[in-house]
Design a protein around this nucleic acid. Sequence first.
DNA 1: GAGTTTGAAACT
DNA 2: CAGTTTCAAACTC
Length: 798
Amino acid sequence: MDTPEKNQIGTPISKFEDSPVFNYINSLSPIKPVKSIHVTQTFNPLNFASLPSVFTSPHVNSHKESRFLKRKTYLDGSKPEFSSGIGNKICTNEGIGMDGAQLFVNSAELQETFDPEVSLGEASVQASTEHSKFVIELPCTLKYDCGSPDCDPPPLCGTETGYVSDLVGKSALLVQNDQEASKKGSSEDEMHLSEMCQTGQKIEGMESGWESLISDVSDLLIFTSPTNSEAFKELIEKSMDPMTRFSTSLMSQLQQIDINDVQTMQIVDPTGSSEQHEINNPSAATGEASELQEIEQTKDNTADNLNKGMSSNTSEQMNSGVATFIPYASKAVSNLYRGMRRRCLDFEMVGARRKNLGDASDLSSSTLDEKIACYDKRLVPIKPSGDSSRCILPGIGLHLNALATNSKDHKNVKHESLSSGQQLYLPSSTASVNSPTNSQEPLRISLTSVSSSERDTELAENGISHVEDASQGSAYLVSDEFNQNSPKKKRRRLEHAGESESCKRCNCKKSKCLKLYCECFAAGVYCIEPCSCQECFNKPIHEDTVLATRKQIESRNPLAFAPKVIRSSESVTEIGDESSKTPASARHKRGCNCKKSNCLKKYCECYQGGVGCSIGCRCEGCKNAFGRKDEAAPMGIEADQEEETDACENSVMDKDLQKSDNQNSEEQNPTSTLPTTPLRLSRPALPLPFSSNCKPPRSSFLTVGSSSGLYTSQKFGKPNIIRSLPKIERHSQTVPEDEMPEILRGNTSPNTGIKSASPNRKRVSPPHSGFGSSPSHRSGRKLILQSIPSFPSLTPKH
DNA sequence: GAGTTTGAAACT
DNA sequence: CAGTTTCAAACTC
């Protein structure tokens, strides 16, 4: 039991076949051990399908679903704060989904309909039986999970072990009946189970074993498609991250189980790259080799043996095969997610995804979209076709999607990585798919380094809490419906994570969240639990309504969903390059109309956005710390601003003002005129004020291209991080990413510190930039650019 | 947490 | 386009 598996791991599948046992089995059962992809796929679906039924709490499911959606769209994940856990799952799912996205969709059906007999190979047959068992037992496990989403490996293991024991028992029966053929299956199952348990424990206690398992599975899946080793690694990492995040959720467990099965199955499948084989083989080989041993043991000790022996063996196997991957994942995972993926973009996610995916991978994208639609909305009937869907939310979704897909640029990742490794993930993943070679390494590095550090911190801080957060986050995403079910978790998350950071919520009472009054709607994101809105229609369920409303609004004002803060047109035009670098130029699209706040409070959109007032503003007594209207001209640093305008008005001057003034005085700047101007310097400071407040920028960012930025940014911060970027682009300040998006600007301005405030990201600017085209500049920019287009796209359909 | 202030969004 | 109303965030207590 103990070691043989390990050794075997390395052995190729061929050995199996050669083994006498194998031959014997073949002779006995009509079914031939075919390792076909199909089988694996079927399993995956099964897993998913089974899960829902199993889960006592809908949240879990919802989370998963949401994550899927998000993930794809985001890819980067940036947002991971809340949903971290979920995100991981999604990743894994995605991994599977990528290969067999379709599988997911149909999984439920497949599972149920699945006839063992029908199954192609032994594995499939066994798997089916196993699944059924799982389904039965899962509920128990799920319950546990639900109760303590935290990773708690021990509990999970315990449950699993129980499960395993059951499986074993069943397997034994099967063996008797089917004899060897069944044996394999049982042994494999055991293996999987034990592996899961062990992996969970071994892998940094923090991370759940599930994750590792999942990661492995995902890896396998991934492998099938992408050949490049690097890409492979990235993929793995991605999957890993998500996994880690979730560690806790039952879903993960279930998935893992499924995954395990899948892995074995996949292993069989040759389609994958050589790497896959290696990995797979080990498991398979171990499974077989161990089978005999295990079978015997199982008879006697079943449960115990499985737990002990399997755990050790399996873990090793896992490690040996997958281990290399895991590290990445584990590191990255923790970091990634805090953030938030969130709902943001969910809307458009679908549409955007399609587009984006189209680039990267049509197949996956299409399937993903469907999935997403289902999950996102929770079943909201989004159209798979996507065209329509796309149109619907082009804005946000596109942005996000674009970002995700585009994120390819690894470079971007690095930028982001500074703040958070998470972002890297998404991009990397996408990147890996698209163009793994270049960026991958860099990404990895950044990820690992960053993620590890972050993770550590997080772990230290949050510890178990992460899990919860993740789960919650997922819940958020999904769930409106679910929210009610498990509001506690959500609340917790919010509190812990800091609501502000992760996401804002709206409090609409009369607008039904279908007007721009609603921050969520304005940002292009669906309302989620944290929202205390009433009669909210801004949910996936009402997607049609939301889209229709959006269209109407856009028809009225095409830029309604565009970021309010924009860079100067000049800069925008140049977007492509760094040339524009002038972050400072950012300005509020329409200008404010403040009369009493002196543009020193968030009532002022300019101020909220972290940008100075410009000529276009009709404000009275402007004292905008970021730049007075009067000053629009160039001010340098002087802080006079305050004085100038009217000191009079000042009653308003708040502490904030003072602070901001001090910090920002520089920025004040210019306003419209300046596109380039100096604001930058000051900007950095500007953001701070917001940050302090912190609310997370709502979605606004998200909506636009910036959204992508947001995500990333959020990731970083997780909770804290983001600061509140105001709706506008302020996130840019805090988060470089945002800036990135800004496009060019950014590239961010050279000033390191800058981030500046330039909110540009959102800039309306030139939509033109095609997603694909985006040049290499820094990832950030690219993203931005891509995102930008989205705006226009908002109304795409037409 | 309730109430007030504020300015954008929506409406006329 | 201007004026008014509606709305929800921001803010204050």
